[in-house]
């Protein structure tokens, strides 16, 4: 399921595709740490949801999710995001939250987007 997860992450945050091995390790470590404290049922649910994404990809495009081009991946996730079934929307919301946490939770990403909050506040900005 890791291949599907990586494909979801790079669809949610396209810049993640540019991450080097160390960057991916950081991202995955953040996600794993966040999931470690969560109930087993939630982790199991996420794995099932990743599998479901793969199935939908095969049903719609006759290809695994990770084998789709970027535009099709985005269309498929957008479809799930607006799905009539709450369970589907909620599953995607959970996955995108993990993707954002893994990517933007890295100090390097915070610096890249220009986030500069500092405990010293105005003292370092004036």
């Amino acid at each position: 399921m890791q291949r599907v997860f990586c494909a979801v992450v790079t669809t949610v945050v396209p810049e993640a595709a540019q991450l080097d091995a160390a960057g991916w390790t950081d991202l995955e470590r953040i996600v794993e740490r966040a999931l470690a404290d969560r109930p087993t049922s939630l982790r199991r649910g996420l794995k099932l949801f990743l599998r479901l994404i793969d199935w939908i990809a095969v049903a719609r495009y006759a290809r695994r999710f990770s084998a789709l081009d970027a535009a099709r991946r985005a269309r498929l996730l957008a479809y799930i995001e607006r799905a009539p079934l709450l369970l589907m929307r909620r599953g995607l919301w959970g996955l995108r939250t993990l993707a954002f946490m893994g990517y933007y939770g890295r100090p390097a990403a915070a610096r890249e987007i220009g986030y500069r909050a500092d405990p010293r506040g105005w003292d370092v900005r004036r």
Binding site: V13, A99, F100, Y104, A110, A117
Partner: peptide
């Protein structure tokens, strides 16, 4: 903060980024 902001914006992908 970066993660909370990213999570709170609607959608994903290029325009979100």
């Amino acid at each position: 903060f970066p993660f909370v902001t990213a999570k709170s914006l609607t959608g994903f992908g290029a325009s979100h980024s």
